[in-house]
């Protein structure tokens, strides 16, 4: 593998829940330092894709390969350990934040670095404080999540993912649980991460944001990638009828 290979290559990902085939052969390639916006109607399988990349879900078939490993081929006999190794390379930011309510902000952030990565606590705390400062939450390190607004909680969620120093950040609709006036503060943080060349996949319904931040837009529908390309092309001048209808609906809901 050469350094110019994509950071992540997913090929032929398939996943069914019972009789419903949710992913029907998904291909994705994500270059290092790039931001991919994953868009599509509800139920199209966006969350499932992210979960497969993060090893939270085991695909029925296909491969997920990171540059420099791991490279996991699903379908046959996949050891649990192999599938879980995907988590070492990526971290997820959830729609509902999913902070640990019984831990303070600081404890939430250093939990992974200290307990899983076995980094010295002092370093993890210093890192956490630096990252909290960057997202404007330096004063909140000893608060419990229930004392924070949704926007603050999501920024902590982002810092918790960053603290693991992953190669890939996965965002699942990071702002869709937020009150409208809090969306901006979270999007600003994500935009700054993009400027710092973090590699990210962002599932979002904020098309204006996708156009501004993403290097590539992937449009999914019915468990397949319908169209992908430069944001201006996919979102302004879609080739596929399905994409066109989706974009129209989001821009003009009624």
């Amino acid at each position: 593998m050469s350094p110019t290979d994509p950071l992540l290559t997913a090929t032929g990902l398939r996943k069914s829940f019972g009789d419903t085939e949710v992913l029907k052969s998904i291909d994705l390639r994500i270059d290092a330092g790039r931001v991919v916006a994953l868009v599509g109607p509800s139920g199209s399988g966006k969350t499932t894709v992210l979960r497969c990349l993060n090893g939270l879900e085991t695909p029925d078939g296909g491969t997920v390969a990171f540059r420099g490993g791991p490279s996991v081929e699903f379908g046959g006999k996949v050891s649990k350990k192999e599938a879980l190794s995907l988590r070492d390379r990526s971290a997820m930011v959830f729609q509902g934040y999913n902070l640990f309510p019984h831990m303070t902000v600081l404890e939430n952030i250093i939990e992974g670095p200290v307990r899983v990565q076995k980094r010295p606590r002092k370093d993890a705390v210093a890192d956490a404080e630096r990252l909290l400062g960057r997202v404007g939450l330096a004063g909140k390190r000893d608060d419990y999540p229930f004392n924070l607004s949704g926007g603050q909680q999501q920024r902590v969620g982002i810092v918790r993912a960053l603290a693991l120093q992953p190669d890939l950040l996965l965002f699942d609709e990071p702002t869709s649980a937020l009150d409208p006036e809090l969306v901006g503060e979270v999007l600003t943080v994500i935009k700054e991460l993009a400027e710092e060349q973090w590699t990210m996949v962002i599932v979002t319904h904020e098309l204006a944001f996708a156009r501004e931040v993403a290097d590539e837009v992937v449009f999914m529908d019915g468990g397949v990638v319908v169209e992908h390309g430069h944001p201006d092309q996919v979102l302004r001048d879609p080739r596929e009828e399905r994409t066109r209808r989706f974009v129209q609906r989001l821009l003009h809901p009624f």
Partner: peptide, 19 residues
């Protein structure tokens, strides 16, 4: 979501359960 948050920061099932 708490299990998933534990898993995404790299915790095993046992560690997520305990912590």
């Amino acid at each position: 979501g708490q299990w998933e948050a534990g898993h995404t920061i790299g915790m095993s099932r046992a560690l997520t359960l305990r912590r």
